[in-house]
Nucleic acid binder design. Structure first.
Lengths: 228, 228
DNA sequence: TATAATAAATGTATTTTTTACATTTATTAT
DNA sequence: ATAATAAATGTAAAAAATACATTTATTATA
């Protein structure tokens, strides 16, 4: 099959740490492996990078395969390259983290693929160094979230301020003051109030907002630093 | 020589973006290549990663070879993996950036190796995507410098506050107010005043300080965010 | 030996940002 | 009518950031 020993040449893999936000909880997408290696173990979703594609292409390919999504917020985390990290191959893995909006369609695709969402403080034992990757990614998004409005990537296009706050509370793992949070978010001037309310979690209902991508881009170009 | 075509398997390389600070200028270490490929062109210092070493090991190896230094501040920048980035090999490169204190000994080693320091706003054309790597690394350290006291890595162990300010001015490419800068730096409580002065740049002389690594570690563990 | 030159060191008032904190509002179900 | 629920709102106090000008220590030289 292979002319050369799997330990004699480099294999390049990507592993994706895919975060979603659902029912007030930050979640991680894990995959129940159906074939060897590591059959019946849990892992992040990943793949070898093909010789004719870039690392970014490979990440997009498997993200689409497992969620149906394209144009997702996805960034490189870091490279994992210990000589003995994978007993089967001399493989370096470039970990990528992604933030996605969970919806019914995604849930369906995820299930069909044998993957599932698990709460981030209940992540089970994963194969190889995938738990380490998850921890590293969580720390990274916590850092990033302080300075870039990544939270919006995880929410539906229309969201309420209390939902946005719940997300930030999940990321930072602490409670925030609703008055101060609202004041801060509105001061950035990057969300637009809609003439619609979400009444799923209260009788009064909370106004829906949408993210103003154009204005955000403009502010970003001016070097504006969002400190949330 | 090689049993397989160089385009048929992955090669893994590291390229190091090594910054130093000398004579009030931020500098980049570039290498004048003495052999093919790219003989007589300029490049970052780099190497293929050996099958039996990690990416971090390879970076340390070449950093030591070109500067004699160990235990240097070095971090992963990102992976460069376009299919056509290197005409010779199917090679992905994991770029690392390092901050070092330039001294006479390092200057000697650098020269022996055929490398040289160039001012960062006079970086010549480098091979492959090395100019892009340099730009990316500069942006990264500018971001990092805002929140972590990386500046200290570039200065001699003993430094004066005006020298530290000049370094931050070089990184941020703007002037800072000396009273406010001093106040801010001292407020972090991570530098220790010594009973010695540096008189190389004024008659009055400026007090030397040293970085308090222990205290910095402690503050960092407490989640303290240094906003310089 | 007075003084000119040089860069280092210092303090304060003002503005801006962050924090802490409690009540009213809109709506639905009973 | 009222009880229940989460959403929406304002202000005062504290902390941090900013703007800004003079004095100090020393050496070289007039």
């Amino acid at each position: 099959m292979d002319l050369y020993n799997k330990k004699d040449k480099f294999y390049v893999a990507v592993d994706c740490i895919i975060f979603g936000f659902d029912a007030g909880k930050l979640k991680l997408l894990v995959f129940n492996r159906k074939i060897d290696p590591f059959k019946n173990s849990l892992s992040l979703i990943g793949s070898f990078v093909k010789i004719g594609e870039s690392v970014a292409d490979a990440s997009k390919r498997i993200l689409k395969e497992f969620t149906g999504l394209e144009n997702v917020y996805m960034k490189e985390l870091k490279t994992y390259s210990s000589v003995d990290r994978d007993p089967g191959y001399r493989c370096i893995s470039v970990a990528q983290y992604a933030l996605i909006r969970i919806n019914a369609n995604i849930k369906k695709i995820v299930e069909e693929k044998g993957a599932k969402w698990c709460e981030i403080d209940r992540v089970p034992k994963l194969i190889l160094d995938h738990n380490q990757m998850t921890t590293d990614a969580l720390n990274r998004i916590e850092q990033i979230a302080k300075h870039k409005p990544v939270g919006f990537e995880l929410l539906p296009k229309k969201f309420t301020i209390p939902k946005l706050q719940a997300l930030y509370e999940a990321i930072y793992r602490r409670k925030l003051d609703p008055r101060n949070f609202r004041k801060k978010i509105l001061s950035f001037d990057v969300i637009i109030k809609l003439d619609e309310k979400d009444r799923t979690s209260s009788k009064k209902g909370a106004y829906l907002y949408k993210f103003d991508h154009k204005r955000y881009k403009k502010l970003q170009e001016l070097g504006y630093d969002f400190e949330i």
